[in-house]
Lab assay of single mutants.
Amino acid sequence: LQAFIKTLTGKTFTVEMEPSDTIENLKAKIQDKEGIPPDQQRLIFAGKQLEDGRTLSDYNIQKESTLHLVL
């Protein structure tokens, strides 16, 4: 599935991932794409901060969901 990552500066980019991917995997993909170390990334979806060990499906993240990236 493709999801949108929106930063506080208003920049939006897309990442490809599977519902079974962990938040940790997602942070690694963001690092590959944007060069931001995972330990500096905080991802917010539906008002909740996402925990590394959980999966996208745990948070009911669907295709074309928008996640907010806070540094």
Rank of each mutant, 00 (worst) to 15 (best):
L1P: 03
L1F: 15
Q2P: 07
A3F: 15
A3L: 15
F4G: 03
F4V: 14
I5H: 02
K6V: 15
K6F: 06
T7Y: 14
T7F: 11
T7K: 04
T7N: 05
L8C: 15
L8K: 11
L8E: 15
L8Q: 14
L8Y: 12
T9E: 12
T9N: 13
T9S: 14
T9L: 09
G10L: 03
G10S: 03
K11R: 14
K11D: 08
K11P: 05
K11V: 08
T12G: 06
F13K: 00
F13L: 06
F13Q: 00
F13E: 01
T14Y: 12
V15Y: 03
E16C: 10
E16N: 11
E16Y: 12
E18M: 14
E18G: 09
E18S: 14
P19I: 11
P19S: 11
S20D: 13
S20Y: 12
S20Q: 10
S20M: 11
S20V: 05
D21Y: 05
D21G: 07
D21R: 02
T22I: 04
T22V: 04
T22M: 05
I23D: 00
I23W: 02
I23R: 01
E24W: 13
E24I: 09
E24P: 02
N25R: 14
N25A: 14
N25I: 14
N25L: 13
L26K: 00
L26V: 06
L26Y: 00
L26I: 08
K27V: 01
K27S: 01
A28N: 11
A28W: 11
K29F: 06
K29V: 06
I30H: 00
I30D: 00
I30N: 00
I30P: 00
Q31I: 02
Q31A: 14
Q31S: 12
D32K: 13
D32L: 13
K33M: 14
K33P: 01
K33R: 12
E34H: 12
E34R: 09
E34K: 08
G35Y: 02
I36T: 07
I36L: 05
I36K: 02
I36F: 13
I36R: 02
P38N: 06
P38K: 15
P38D: 03
P38L: 13
D39S: 14
Q40S: 09
Q41F: 14
Q41W: 04
R42V: 15
R42A: 07
L43V: 05
L43I: 12
L43T: 00
L43Q: 00
L43E: 00
I44M: 10
I44Q: 06
I44T: 10
I44F: 15
F45Y: 13
F45D: 01
F45L: 09
A46L: 12
A46Y: 10
A46P: 01
G47C: 05
K48C: 08
K48G: 06
K48A: 10
Q49N: 11
Q49R: 09
Q49W: 13
L50H: 01
E51Y: 05
E51I: 08
E51D: 08
E51K: 08
D52T: 05
D52R: 03
G53W: 14
G53Y: 11
T55S: 10
T55M: 10
L56C: 03
L56N: 01
L56G: 01
L56D: 00
L56H: 01
S57R: 11
S57H: 09
S57L: 12
S57M: 11
S57A: 14
D58C: 03
D58S: 12
D58P: 00
D58F: 12
Y59T: 02
Y59H: 03
Y59E: 02
N60M: 11
N60S: 07
N60C: 05
N60R: 05
I61M: 07
I61P: 05
I61Y: 07
I61V: 11
I61C: 03
Q62C: 06
Q62L: 12
Q62F: 10
Q62M: 12
K63I: 08
K63E: 12
K63A: 15
E64M: 10
E64C: 09
E64R: 07
E64P: 04
S65N: 10
T66S: 06
T66E: 09
T66C: 06
L67D: 01
L67C: 01
H68E: 12
H68I: 15
H68M: 13
L69Y: 01
V70I: 13
V70H: 09
V70G: 05
V70P: 00
L71Q: 07
L71M: 11
